[in-house]
């Protein structure tokens, strides 16, 4: 079909195209090590398109192919351009979506959440303070050593918790114990101690847990009990969730 001369010309073309492709690759990599802002993308895509065109025209022989094949293959790039171009024109030029920082989305009292976060870590001073409160508020039932054998507890049913047993009815993590101290335990004589301040309740929690041989750590699940943890907490303003306005309004409506 093709003459010898014609084919020899092709080989020369292939060689030249090969060299050009290698040179273009070096150029595009070299450019990528320099920062020209938006031009990096333009150059990288431009060079890639030149390389792709060379491959199409000469290696794939599209230049010498019949018109039908040329139209068919080029048409795919026309459709690709529509597909990619319209998507890009939408995505790249959208106005920056307004990000709402809505106070109401935070837990009811932001400061309280921060306080809780701080107090839920046990310290020697908190434990010492907890012991004082324990001796005045809890000893009567739970006993001076926390064995559940206080004088007022003898008649109670069920008997008060022996903290040295390592057993917990409602869980032994700081958050769970805090919740039990705050809310009491339904179906038992254990009353709620809401009258104590948050700091005092935490001190108690740390003292009580210091008596127990079984002190599991909090998980995201248990933290939710006290309004902390994932999705609920926003301790500092930096950790504020960034959510779109309509979603925030939705959340506010649900909360109210």
């Amino acid at each position: 079909m093709a003459s010898k001369q014609h084919n020899a010309d092709h080989r020369k073309t292939y060689f030249v195209v090969w060299m050009m492709l290698l040179v273009f690759t070096v150029i595009t990599v070299w450019v990528s090590y320099h920062n020209y802002g938006v031009f990096n993308i333009v150059v990288a895509m431009g060079v890639a398109t030149v390389k792709a065109t060379l491959v199409c025209l000469f290696f794939m022989h599209l230049k010498y192919d019949n018109r039908l094949n040329q139209v068919v293959f080029v048409a795919s790039f026309v459709f690709l351009a529509i597909f990619v171009g319209l998507t890009a024109s939408d995505e790249l030029f959208r106005p920056v979506e307004a990000v709402a920082k809505v106070e109401a989305v935070r837990p009811p009292a932001g400061n309280q959440a921060a306080l809780m976060e701080k107090l839920r870590n046990s310290t020697p001073s908190l434990i010492a303070k907890g012991k004082e409160i324990y001796l005045s508020q809890c000893m009567a039932c739970h006993g001076a050593e926390g064995k559940g054998n206080g004088p007022a507890g003898a008649a109670l049913n069920p008997t008060p918790r022996d903290f040295t047993s390592g057993l917990w009815k409602q869980g032994g993590t700081p958050a769970q114990v805090f919740k039990t101290v705050s809310d009491g335990m339904a179906g038992t004589p254990m009353p709620p101690f809401e009258s104590l301040s948050v700091a005092d309740r935490w001190a108690l929690v740390h003292f009580i847990r210091s008596l127990s041989p079984n002190t599991p750590a909090d998980t995201p699940e248990t933290l939710k009990l006290i309004g902390l943890g994932e999705g609920v907490s926003a301790v500092s303003s930096q950790a504020l969730p960034e959510i779109p306005v309509d979603f925030a309004i939705d959340r506010m409506v649900k909360e109210k």
């Binding site: 094949n69 068919v72 459709f79 690709l80 597909f83 790249l92």
Partner: peptide
């Protein structure tokens, strides 16, 4: 050869879908 070119058209569009996903996530 026409058959192969048609196949390559589908290949271009197959990868085109991935390029579009790329653009969307990159813009985000």
């Amino acid at each position: 050869k026409l058959g192969l070119w048609l196949f390559l058209v589908t290949e271009i569009l197959l990868f085109g879908g991935l390029f579009v996903i790329y653009i969307i996530y990159r813009a985000m």
